[in-house]
Write a protein that binds this DNA or RNA. Structure first.
Lengths: 145, 145
DNA sequence: GTTTGAATTAGACAGAGTCCAATTCGTAAC
DNA sequence: GTTACGAATTGGACTCTGTCTAATTCAAAC
């Protein structure tokens, strides 16, 4: 399909995406998915809530949290924990790592396809890897420390 | 110095360690340091408080938090963020990474000396690395998921 | 024993996230 | 178009981690 634009997210194809992950696509869930996928950003729960309720309040705090946890469980999104008092939700589920700017609090993706990690010890027996997070913490070089 | 036992922590040499990091060694601070360094474990703030107040209540919540943040600032300990709602404090400041057992919540050290990470992109100019965290999340292989 | 600044304290407070019982929604059957 | 019913959503109370503040205590210097 030459010329196909696969990165365009509409509410319709997000509904399909939800169904494909076994999630009943309700209004609120579609709006929350749209907030996450149409921007390519890492958002916290309260940022998601603010975006979804921009025009007029439509979605409660409980639903935002329920939905984000449902999306996590169904592996539609990922959780990134860099700040002790705020969880970020990441619509990019491709393998990738993160660069965290301590100064600005901004989080950037690092593509994982070129990254190799060697020399890790064997896992304890009976354990399987669920995932690996790599977070590189950076700051401006001129900043006093 | 053959035969030297360098891993023994007493309240006396912990006081010296605190002074060496520019920290005035008070009773409470020594007790908190002792809790962290005598065990070789990752403890959360409330675990530290429980340990320090085992016999009779001696140290307030505010002091525990103040002291842990002071230790962090003076690079006596490290912060490990794996669980969105609990920060762990790590007395091991040697370069190392972490294995996180999602089932039990237990955190284990991985020595960094054999680990090599290659293929990372260059940092944005004007940025310096402050540190790199690697967290491997594991779970028992038989666990339903 | 006084003085003085640093450290500690209790308890109120803040913010993120969870829980629960009551309501509303959407759909399928009629 | 109504009805029925399970699923989803809701507001608000609640919990938990961590911070703040004003008052008190401590310990060292004199």
């Amino acid at each position: 399909m030459p010329g196909m634009v696969s990165t365009q997210f509409t509410r319709d194809n997000l509904a399909d995406k939800l169904r494909a992950h076994g999630i009943n696509p309700t209004h609120q869930r579609i709006e929350i998915a749209f907030a996450l996928f149409s921007r390519h950003e890492h958002l916290s729960a309260d940022q998601v809530m603010a975006i979804v309720n921009e025009r007029h309040s439509e979605t409660s705090k409980a639903t935002v949290y329920n939905t984000l946890n449902l999306f996590l469980e169904k592996k539609l999104i990922r959780e990134v924990i860099v700040d002790p008092n705020k969880v970020f939700y990441d619509p990019n589920t491709e393998p990738h790592y993160h660069l965290y700017d301590l100064q600005s609090g901004r989080l950037t993706d690092i593509d994982a396809s070129d990254v190799r990690v060697t020399g890790l010890p064997a896992l304890p027996s009976g354990m399987v890897t669920e995932g690996m997070d790599i977070i590189i913490r950076v700051r401006p070089s001129d900043a006093a420390h």
